[in-house]
């Protein structure tokens, strides 16, 4: 079940897939199946990489995008979890607000782009707003359902042993919902990373999304591929980082059984 049981040989398989893909890509460009202007070669992309790194632009774009995702995502988490806790416990408030939350959850965050620009202009703010809109509602909903599914016996045990008030929140409710909430954070972090690219394409002057758009406008297909590769890799890295949370000893129980 765990990757520990996979043999060293099997671990090299992804590398084999990568090399095969590179080989096919090279072959396609070498055979000139598609014109160079719409299908850049691996060598052109590698050169583009060097260009982007040495000019410092890649670093700037990366920092800009990561800052926006972190800010929007953190804001959504800090506001979404308390709201979810409150709605999870208060039936009346939940009945009142759940339809509205479901409505906004179903609304693509990209639909907010025009308003984001009108209200916040160009730069960090509209992107942060869009990321917030993408992740806030799923986080609220997941927290509500996590709170609702805490077995009643935990609260009874807590009362038996004299846990009450604020301690009930920190010692029972929060640890009980942590595994489910972390799973959602992982999903919404991925979602945020998707949204930041779209947001920067339209409402940015820097960032990886803007880099893609800029490459397209300058007909630099090699740089476009560079942007795509970086976005994909960072997305995987973010996900791997959040997976580490799931390995914390006091949280793992939620996944192992």
């Amino acid at each position: 079940m765990t990757p520990d049981h996979v043999s060293t040989k099997a671990r090299l398989l992804p590398l084999l897939v990568l090399l095969t893909a590179l080989a096919i890509w090279s072959l396609l460009t070498w055979l000139r199946v598609f014109p160079e202007s719409v299908f850049p070669s691996p060598i052109a992309v590698a050169k583009g990489f060097g260009e982007e790194i040495s000019s410092g632009r890649m670093y700037n774009d990366l920092v800009a995008s990561l800052f926006r995702v972190t800010a929007g995502f953190a804001l959504a988490t800090v506001l979404g979890i308390p709201l979810g806790l409150w709605l999870g416990q208060g039936a009346r408030a939940r009945i009142a607000l759940l339809p509205a939350i479901n409505f906004f959850r179903s609304l693509s965050p990209l639909a907010w782009i025009p308003f984001a620009i009108l209200w916040f202009g160009i730069g960090d703010k509209p992107a942060i707003f869009l990321i917030f809109m993408a992740s806030f509602f799923p986080i609220v909903l997941a927290t509500i359902s996590a709170v609702a599914s805490i077995p009643n016996v935990y609260f009874r045990v807590a009362r038996d042993y004299g846990i009450k008030g604020f301690d009930m929140l920190t010692q029972v409710t929060l640890p009980a919902i942590a595994p489910q909430v972390i799973t959602t954070l992982r999903v919404t972090a991925g979602l945020s990373w998707l949204v930041v690219v779209a947001a920067e394409m339209i409402a940015g002057r820097d960032g990886l999304g803007f880099a893609i758009w800029d490459a397209r406008n300058g007909l630099r297909m090699d740089l476009l591929v560079v942007g795509m590769i970086v976005i994909g890799i960072i997305g995987v890295v973010i996900d791997r980082l959040l997976v580490q949370l799931m390995k914390i000893e006091s949280i793992r129980w939620g996944y192992d059984r």
């Binding site: 016996v153 640890p175 939620g254």
Partner: peptide, 8 residues
Amino acid sequence: QDGLFPWL
């Protein structure tokens, strides 16, 4: 059953 806190 399950009266223990699984996170402790």
